[in-house]
Simulated assay, not measured.
Amino acid sequence: MSGKAAGRVTGLQWSAWNLLLLVPLLMLITPWFNFDKPRLLGLPFFYWYQFLFVIVGVGSVALVYVMTKGKPVVTGKPDRLAEVDGLDEGADQ
Rank of each mutant, 00 (worst) to 15 (best):
V84W: 13
D92M: 14
K71V: 06
G57R: 06
M67R: 11
T68S: 10
K71N: 14
G70Y: 07
L52C: 15
A5I: 11
K77W: 09
A16T: 07
L19H: 03
L22V: 13
P44W: 00
R80H: 07
V54W: 13
R8S: 10
L81N: 14
F35C: 01
G70W: 04
W17D: 05
R8V: 13
L28T: 09
G59P: 04
R80T: 12
V74M: 10
P38C: 04
G11F: 03
G90Y: 11
L12R: 14
D88A: 08
K69I: 00
G7Y: 12
W17K: 03
T10A: 03
P78D: 05
P72L: 07
V84K: 11
R39V: 15
F51E: 11
V84Y: 11
D88T: 08
E89A: 13
L87R: 12
W48D: 04
T10S: 07
L87H: 06
A6T: 02
R8F: 12
A5H: 09
T30G: 02
W32H: 06
A62K: 05
G42F: 12
V74W: 02
L43T: 03
A62T: 08
K69D: 00
G90V: 08
G3L: 02
A16P: 04
Y49H: 13
K69F: 04
P78L: 04
W17H: 11
D92C: 07
L81Q: 14
T30A: 14
L19S: 12
G59W: 12
P44N: 13
L87A: 09
M27R: 01
Y49P: 04
G90N: 09
L63S: 06
M1I: 04
T68N: 10
G57W: 02
R8G: 01
D85I: 12
S60V: 15
K4A: 03
L26F: 11
L40Y: 14
K71Y: 02
W32N: 10
V66W: 13
Q50W: 09
L28F: 15
V54I: 14
S60Y: 01
M67Y: 02
L43K: 08
D36K: 14
G76E: 07
W32R: 04
P24R: 05
Q50N: 14
L12H: 15
S15K: 05
S15N: 12
G57D: 03
D88Q: 09
V64P: 09
L19T: 11
S15G: 00
D92R: 13
A82P: 05
L87C: 03
D79G: 07
I29S: 07
G57I: 01
F46M: 11
W17I: 00
V64W: 00
D85K: 13
G70V: 04
G7R: 08
R80E: 11
P78T: 08
L41A: 15
L28D: 09
V64N: 00
L25I: 08
A5V: 10
G42M: 08
S2Q: 10
N34I: 05
V23R: 03
